[in-house]
Design a protein around this nucleic acid. Structure first.
Lengths: 248, 248
DNA sequence: AAGTGGTCTAGACCACCTG
DNA sequence: AGGTGGTCTAGACCACTTA
């Protein structure tokens, strides 16, 4: 019997069925029913559970894969997306060397401490000013030369246990650590980019003259349900690198 | 009879059917069989022509719509995407006012002339140095204050007839003019972003001190089949605006 | 061989728009 | 009322991976 209509399922309003399925899957992802890197049930399995056809589950999963919440692997299964992979490790790093070289960046941790959030930090994070945050300052170096100075603020409610030691010990990307050590998976981010004259302190750390032009990249990272989980203010040297972007 | 397999159609190798359909549609788009803004045949119509099911055509169109080559409108039909629309007019303009205001930008044309391409211009455009190009310099103003200085190079082979008069006369966006007046539809673009100290000439035009930090945005625009059709070097004042980006 | 995602079909019905 | 895109189903078969 084809064409049962779109409001057959119990919960949900007039949304198409596959949208409702999508929501149910996202809820399970958010609840941690399946952890990053793990395989989720097969399309047929989910179809049985939800009482819909395989095609409907497939469409829901398709959209979630397009949003990078899930990852499909033919013949293997569908997996919860993770930052702990060589392949997707640079999805959020838009810095590229002008000469096209792919050299890895080195991290140097400068600070890691608990602070009270200024209004300028609290607002983008959805906190109240004075709320506890973890502040991290670090340098990224290419070929031993400093390229990026990052200031990072994280809500202490989520990242209270973060210490310099744990940060220094971790091998993979920061976002990989967030998801494996704190259960916080970064989904997408918004950035505001400006050019500014290097303040004295930043200039010294980056090895440029005070007042030299730097790229200012302010990033707000969001997890499931658009919840902000990170504020990052980066200063980029762009004398041998650039920020690459694609307009689609 | 279901499941005819994926290599039933005459042309094409082992690609899935819907990919082959996609190619056929792109070929027609590129050939100008349907012009920007026009409606293409219905899914059922195309399915009949290509000898496949409606679902297969639908999947092909779905991917083309995701790439912004086509636009679907429920109840109306599927249309060739166009830059001549209020809705998609700012798809490639990433500049936003810091205070969130949506004020329109004013254009002021400064130059429009034919030149021989320097190597730095020729290479990204896929030309040989010395080839003829049309050079355009213009200013974008917000609230009568200059914000962007754009230098634009276009292959004369495609845009030979472009003059200051025609540019000044045109109402819509530049890309809308390209597609309606020259039959060149811009599909996607790559940008390289840097911070630099304002050169004297640019500083004067933008109303900032020489040496003030500016955002440098180099854009390479491509049409069908990844063919480069525009090189644009913009200098942005970011004291009251910023370049917004989303990381997905 | 068995399990998984990927493709394709055929048919039904819904939602939206136009005349 | 008729056309168009949008959703849903049921079933078949293909392609890839693992055992």
């Amino acid at each position: 019997m084809a064409g049962m209509g779109s409001t057959t399922s119990a919960a949900g309003g007039t949304r198409p069925l596959y949208r409702q399925i999508k929501l149910l899957i996202v809820q399970d992802l958010q609840a941690g029913v399946w952890k990053p890197g793990e395989m989720i049930p097969s399309e047929w399995d989910l179809a049985d559970r939800f009482g819909v056809s395989q095609g409907t589950v497939r469409k829901a999963i398709g959209e979630l894969a397009a949003q990078h919440l899930l990852q499909r692997r033919q013949g293997k299964g569908t997996f919860v997306a993770t930052h702990a992979e060589q392949a997707t490790r640079y999805r959020f790093l838009r810095l590229a060397a002008d000469d096209g070289s792919q050299r890895d960046l080195t991290r140097r941790l400068l600070q890691c401490q608990r602070l009270r959030a200024d209004p300028d930090v609290a607002r983008p994070l959805g906190l109240r000013s004075g709320d506890a945050v973890v502040f991290v300052r670090r340098l990224l170096l290419a070929d031993s030369r400093p390229v990026v100075l990052d200031d990072i603020w994280l809500p202490a409610r989520l990242f209270g246990d973060l210490t310099a030691e744990r940060l220094a010990a971790y091998e993979g990307s920061m976002y990989a650590m967030f998801e494996s050590a704190f259960g916080v998976r970064m989904i997408r981010a918004e950035e505001k980019i400006r050019a500014l004259a290097a303040p004295a302190e930043a200039a010294a750390l980056l090895g440029v003259a005070a007042g030299a032009p730097l790229l200012s990249v302010e990033r707000r990272s969001l997890t499931y349900r658009e919840r902000p989980v990170e504020l990052r203010r980066g200063l980029y040297r762009t004398d041998a690198h650039h920020y690459r972007n694609e307009l689609l």
